[in-house]
Simulated assay, not measured.
Amino acid sequence: MQPTPPILEITDLVLAPFGRQTTYGADHLKIARGDVIAIEADAALDSRQLLRVLATLDRPEKGRFRFDGSDVDLDDYRRCLAVKRRIGYVAPDCAMVSNRTVRENLLLTRFYHENDLSIDLDETMALLCKDAGLSDDLNRRPSELNDSVLMKTIAIREMGKRPLLMLIDRPENFIQITPDDAIFNHLKNMVQSKTAVVFFSNNEKMSDLGRRQLTLHNGTIRIMDSQ
């Protein structure tokens, strides 16, 4: 039996943070199934940029990508769509389509890939919306939501993709890191199902979930087991 390939593998990575002269590099960056990785960075914005690179939203200065065992050509946007569909990304720079309802925004990926506008939220997503207190917001436009509710909605949208890799920037800004929070519980369920999770957080309870640590320090990117 051949070993299971990493979810994401980048070789010869060079990350050049915006507006800064420093760069970070890694010969081989590998994220495996079931990894729960907490980021520590010299600057918080560097962690955001790394998350965007991992999500294939930004191109690094240099690097060769493989996702779930296949090469990824970052210059071919259409072929990258299948990869982007399997990556969840939740951060303050995320957005929703302003002239669609929350319900429609949650379904856009399925509308596109299933070519069916008549579908509705599946049982898991509908329950998650209910438990997160969003049921009354489903027919509103994104502009009618406050920032916290909007970020919760984006988190549910990305979780609804059933991603192989989940990337989250400062979840404490929109969810409670407690067993009573529906989104936090769903995230833990994803971890138990071997979804890889990479996150940046200033909340100690969240950081304690990290089984491994990814550091951006003194020009080097490293992943190591948490102590």
Rank of each mutant, 00 (worst) to 15 (best):
V36L: 07
V36H: 05
V36Y: 05
I37Q: 02
I37C: 05
I39C: 09
I39N: 03
A41V: 07
A41M: 05
D42Y: 06
A43T: 06
A44N: 09
A44I: 11
A44G: 06
L45V: 12
D46N: 14
D46H: 14
S47R: 07
S47G: 15
S47L: 08
S47T: 08
R48F: 09
R48N: 12
R48S: 14
R48T: 14
Q49R: 14
Q49D: 11
Q49F: 05
L51H: 08
L51Q: 03
R52A: 15
R52Q: 15
V53N: 07
V53Y: 06
V53C: 04
L54R: 03
L54H: 07
A55K: 01
T56E: 02
L57F: 12
L57Q: 10
R59C: 04
R59S: 12
P60W: 04
P60Q: 10
P60K: 10
G63R: 00
F65K: 06
F65G: 03
F65V: 13
F65T: 11
R66I: 00
R66D: 02
F67H: 02
F67T: 04
D68L: 13
D68A: 15
G69D: 10
G69L: 03
S70H: 12
D71V: 08
D71C: 00
V72C: 06
D76W: 02
D76F: 00
D76L: 03
D76S: 06
Y77I: 10
Y77F: 13
R78K: 09
R78A: 14
R79H: 14
R79S: 15
A82R: 12
V83C: 01
K84P: 00
R85D: 11
R85N: 13
R86K: 15
I87A: 05
I87W: 04
G88H: 06
G88Q: 03
Y89D: 03
Y89Q: 02
V90M: 04
V90W: 00
A91C: 01
A91K: 04
A91N: 07
P92K: 02
P92C: 05
P92Y: 04
D93W: 09
D93F: 05
D93H: 07
D93A: 04
D93K: 07
C94H: 01
C94T: 11
C94S: 15
M96E: 02
V97E: 09
V97W: 04
S98H: 08
S98W: 07
N99F: 11
V102K: 00
V102P: 00
R103T: 01
R103I: 00
N105W: 06
L106I: 11
L106F: 09
L106C: 08
L106Q: 03
L107R: 13
T109L: 11
T109F: 01
R110G: 06
R110T: 12
R110I: 02
R110W: 07
F111S: 09
H113F: 15
H113E: 13
E114C: 13
E114D: 15
S118E: 13
I119T: 13
D120I: 03
L121Q: 13
D122N: 15
D122S: 12
D122P: 10
